[in-house]
Design a protein around this nucleic acid. Sequence first.
DNA 1: TAAACGTGGCG
DNA 2: TCGCCAAGTTT
Length: 367
Amino acid sequence: MPPSRLGEPRWGDPGLGEPDLEEPGLEEPDLVDRGLGGLHRRVTDWFAANARDLPWRRPECTPWGVMVSEFMLQQTPVARVLPVWEEWMERWPEPADLAAEPAGEALRAWGRLGYPRRALRLHGAAQRIVEEHGGRVPSAHADLLALPGVGAYTAAAISCFAFGAPETVVDTNIRRVHARLVSGRALPEPSYTAAEARLAEALMPAREQDGGRLANAWNAAVMELGALVCTARSPRCPQCPVADVCAWVGAGQPEPHYVPKGQPWAGTDRQVRGAFMAVLRASEVPVRRAELLGASGRVPNPAAPAEDTASGDTALGNTVSGDPALAAAWKRLAGLSAPADQRLRCLDGLLADGLAHEGPEGVALPH
DNA sequence: TAAACGTGGCG
DNA sequence: TCGCCAAGTTT
């Protein structure tokens, strides 16, 4: 490891010994007091020169815009959020605009971002903001946390990014940077630990110095570093502004100390629910329950009337439509090999979750 | 606390 | 090609 250009102690100095799983080295105050300023400056300077120009980071973006972006970005890459966020901002520039619409409109406009319950919660949050906060996104962490779909990360992020508060923001990017830079590990722990929380707090710039300006900037800077340079798959260490003090680099980039759990997909309820939701989003009219449940590549649909041989679409009655999205959604659903009991469980689950509504004419997005 | 919860692009 | 992974929250 090359010597620090700033002549500061290196967090990953082998002399500090093996990283302790329970108590990272930064627990010690004198370690915290030395050299952090250099770290802060280098990362925030890097951010100033390399940050992406994302619309929700522009000065003219409202707190509502930041809030919408934070919901959409939960477990979803920036590239896919961008176009949907633009549509939402144009259609619903304020919380009251969204709150005035049926929840189903939020679900439809959510498109294929995934985890559609986020759209439902965002809609619910907008209604609460209108009812309890005069239509303005609250700035207090506690008020934000009380909103549906807002957890520890999102509350801190909105408070920080929309209102300039010096919150301690911890997301998966930040956790990964901390794990490598300080703890010398390839990945953060499988679940967020108290030790990680203490470490994140210890690394925060002092709030007293500048009214929290640096503390506020630090969050976005570390997050961006994790997103652009200190990535999960193939980190770009040569481009990293703090590679020379990185504990993981100093240790020779050791492999992860555990095997990340996979995210099963094929054959899961999530896959079936997703296929149902795609049909409901694409359909302008309610869909009969039996037709939804019967959609299968093998099971004939008893509810379907005589087939229109000219359509050639599928064997399903109401797939005869000029809408390619609807046809594709039906096709995907029909292509699943999910057993009948799973289909039934998933449909009931969607209804129970409020993602769908069943009326006399069939199943549709909620009103 | 572990598991459930969507989706699509990249290595 | 196919598994990994992305600005988490909820129960």
